Computed example of a mutant assay.
Amino acid sequence: MTMRVEPIIGRYGHMEIEGRTHRVYWEEAGEGVPLVCLHTAGADGRQYRAVLNDPEVTAHHRVIVFDMPRHGKSSPAPGTVDDAYALTSDAYAAQILAVCDALELDRPVVMGCSIGGRIVLHLAHRHPERFRALIGLQSSDHVAPYYDTAWLHRPDVHGGEVCGAVAYGLMAPQSPEAERDETRWHYMQGGPGVFRGDLWFYKVDGDISGQVAEIDVAKCPIHLLTGSYDYSCTPDDTRDLARRLGVEMTEMEGMGHFPMSENPERFLDYLRPVLRTIREG
């Protein structure tokens, strides 16, 4: 039987983020305009495996997917493994800028989902000159609390299984079963308290509703795509954000909160035209 080898290269790099040295893992494939992909809360870069493997995308883009510190193959900074973790807007933005600087990326496109879809708004607000364009998946300016995050990190509860269950409920039933299973498996493998700590940004610190009017999309174009089956960031949430920004949004039919992971082939049908527009623009 012939083995199929994927064209993805994984590397570790030692870089400074907010005054601390971190060993960060990233995967990449392709050549061309840099496309940096940001994974969701509590997960890692494996969510973008289809984008990394798509020849149409990688023919035009150097796709880069890094694991945030504490996620996937990126460990916590030395001496911080027992620290209480709560992701802030400043820390999240600093990670992204540090990776872009370390890899010497010239005005990359940045695409993020969920918490990644929120941080791209902060990037547009703080550093629009650094990016060619920004893509927000499941992107909203805030989210109303809808569950008790304490259940995600308790000594009497299996945190991985709870995280997987939360992720499973956010996916569309129309998405292929194998892809949904792999998506929740990623969530079951997260470090203790990491999902809960990421949600501090998503639910509290990352609320940017008061600054949306200050974002100038003429300085950095923003593209918004949201799955139709998502109660965490509904299409109406993104539609309202798009109206306030003065941009269009695309509703992705039959997908939930993790479009690039739960239904990757269908997601690529939506992504390719957006990337084409960015290149031509």
Rank of each mutant, 00 (worst) to 15 (best):
R132L: 04
V204S: 07
Y146N: 14
G197S: 03
K203F: 11
P173T: 05
G206Q: 00
G191W: 05
Y187A: 02
V217H: 03
A178Q: 11
H153F: 00
A172T: 14
L134C: 12
Y146K: 12
R196E: 14
V157C: 00
K203R: 08
H142R: 09
G160P: 06
D181S: 06
F201N: 11
L137C: 04
I135E: 02
A165M: 15
G190L: 02
V162Q: 04
S139P: 05
W185A: 12
P176I: 07
G227L: 09
H142S: 11
A178S: 06
Y229V: 11
Y231A: 13
I215F: 00
P176A: 11
I215T: 12
V143M: 07
A213K: 12
T149P: 03
D216W: 02
A178I: 08
G159A: 04
S228C: 08
R184A: 13
S175K: 07
I215E: 02
V162E: 12
S139F: 05
L137Q: 02
L152S: 02
H223W: 10
G136H: 06
H223K: 10
V204M: 06
G190N: 13
D156Q: 11
R196A: 06
R184E: 12
Q174L: 07
Q174K: 08
M188D: 13
L170M: 10
C163L: 04
D148A: 13
Q174P: 06
S228D: 07
D205R: 01
H142Q: 11
M171L: 15
L134N: 05
S209P: 08
D148L: 15
W200F: 07
V157L: 05
A218L: 02
I208A: 00
Y146L: 15
E177T: 13
E129A: 12
E161K: 15
G169V: 15
Y147W: 14
K203A: 10
Y147K: 11
R132E: 03
W151Y: 06
G197A: 03
D198V: 08
A167D: 14
I135A: 02
H223G: 10
K219V: 05
G193L: 01
